[in-house]
Simulated assay, not measured.
Amino acid sequence: MTVEAETTWGHELPREVDVVVIGAGQAGLSAAHHLRRRGFEPYRGFVVLDADETPGGAWAHRSPSLRMATVHGFHDLPDSALPAPDPDAPAREVVPVWFAAYEAEHALPVVRPVRVRAVRSLPDGRLQVETDRGDWTARALVNATGTWTRPFLPHYPGHFAGRQLHYADYRGPEEFAGQKVLVVGGGASAIQVLSELGPVAETVWATRRPPVYRDGPFTPEAGRAAVALVEQRVREGLPVRSVVSVTGLGPSVAYRRAEELGVLNRRPMFDRLTEHGAVWDGTEEHLDAIVWATGFRPEITHLAPLGLRGPGGGIRMEGTRAAADPRIHLVGYGPSASTVGANRAGRTAVNDIVELLGPTAQGRGEPRSSNAGAVQLTA
């Protein structure tokens, strides 16, 4: 299928580029910014394919109850600071507005909505990016698809007949008023849910391991140490752990609220589920609902045709580059799966791509300052 969309140049959208970026969240926008900065021309030299209909990445899908004051952490985009928001404003409204302004201000060539189905290697050395809106070919690829679309639900024995949902589908505490809710997970998402449910519901909190609490602010040294632990895993080709999983729980607004409410009474994981609840040490406890705040996995299924996964189950990485294929860069993955890490990863990936492609890149040259902007594809 060929889609003819008009850019602001008034020409058919180019389908052969030097670099395709998949995803327009923080990592993808960072990569796009640095591609423009290094002289890749929008649409002709590179393009950003985004699955969503509007800007914002995963932030646009977060719970309406997540306020800017309770966001776990955030970092500015390259050359653009987030304007001081109202602390009570929903993050799902504030961040997408900022991302949209960033795309426009930097004239980034974001094309949406485009869902990438597969990436394959062509005989001539280029990459074929297959989408629901036709194909693009590229000489290098930056994958910035994040994790939000792959929520992880662990398997436990038994069956619970009540309501179960992953944190990705959580929309606030109101619908759980007066209920008894089990919150599963030891990260920032679980703390957010507990802090919101505490005033309206009876909560039970369960994690596989005792949570690691961190006193005081998160220092740059601690951040580097956490990133190093995650980097070691991806260098060895092991399944990715999130940076947050090794940083511990810090004194956030949500954490302090949950502590004040007395809902941070962690239990070990239950033995099994039952129709009406869960069993700990042979005793069944009735539940009305379970919220699984059990994290996410990287969305990289479309890269499967490239055969990047190693025997360890993960993709072995050298910086942001897939060790098995220097054309492929993963940003917002592993050690860069945080807002500050995503910015650095975008710059690193583009530096490597410039070195890989060299002066033969077709879209290099002075970027146009006013003729690029997001393209909305229509059926």
Rank of each mutant, 00 (worst) to 15 (best):
R368W: 14
P239Y: 06
V142R: 09
A101K: 08
F152M: 15
P211L: 01
L303G: 08
H61W: 07
V212P: 04
S242L: 12
L377M: 03
P113N: 07
V94K: 03
G57K: 01
A324Y: 07
E12S: 12
T283K: 12
R67C: 12
W292V: 06
Y333D: 14
A304T: 06
V47E: 02
P220Y: 01
R117M: 14
V234M: 06
G346K: 00
F152E: 15
G56D: 13
P83N: 06
L229C: 09
Y43A: 13
G25N: 07
V375F: 05
E41D: 14
M317H: 02
Q164L: 15
T301W: 14
V114G: 09
G312H: 10
E355H: 11
E103K: 05
V331W: 04
V212E: 14
M269D: 12
V253C: 02
L127I: 08
R15P: 10
V48L: 07
R327H: 11
H75F: 14
V97Y: 09
D76Y: 05
A5T: 07
A225P: 03
D352S: 13
T147K: 08
L182G: 06
P199K: 11
S121G: 09
A254P: 11
D352P: 06
A304E: 12
P217W: 01
L357N: 11
L141S: 04
I315S: 02
K180N: 15
R235W: 09
A258V: 01
S252T: 14
T274N: 05
V204K: 06
N265V: 10
A258I: 05
W205K: 05
P335T: 04
G314L: 01
A168W: 06
R15I: 13
Y255D: 15
G162Y: 06
V19Q: 10
A24Y: 06
Y170E: 07
G334H: 00
G346S: 01
R297E: 13
A226F: 02
D79I: 01
G363H: 00
E93G: 10
G223Q: 12
H75G: 12
G187C: 00
P367L: 05
L229R: 15
T247I: 06
P151H: 09
V375Q: 09
A101E: 13
A51F: 02
L306P: 05
E275W: 05
E174P: 01
E175F: 01
G216R: 05
T294D: 10
P55R: 04
H329G: 04
T2F: 14
D352C: 04
P173M: 03
T283M: 12
E93K: 03
T378V: 12
L127R: 04
P335M: 08
Q362T: 15
A254I: 08
Q164W: 13
T320S: 04
P113W: 02
V181C: 01
A24F: 07
T137L: 03
G307K: 00
H159Q: 14
P251Y: 03
H11S: 15
R364Y: 02
L264K: 03
L122Y: 11
V181K: 00
F218H: 12
S242M: 13
D288W: 00
T2Q: 15
P326N: 09
V129Q: 00
M68F: 09
W148C: 03
A104I: 04
A69Y: 00
V227M: 10
V350L: 08
V111C: 06
F270V: 07
R208F: 03
H155R: 15
T147A: 09
S189V: 02
E93C: 10
G365R: 00
A361F: 00
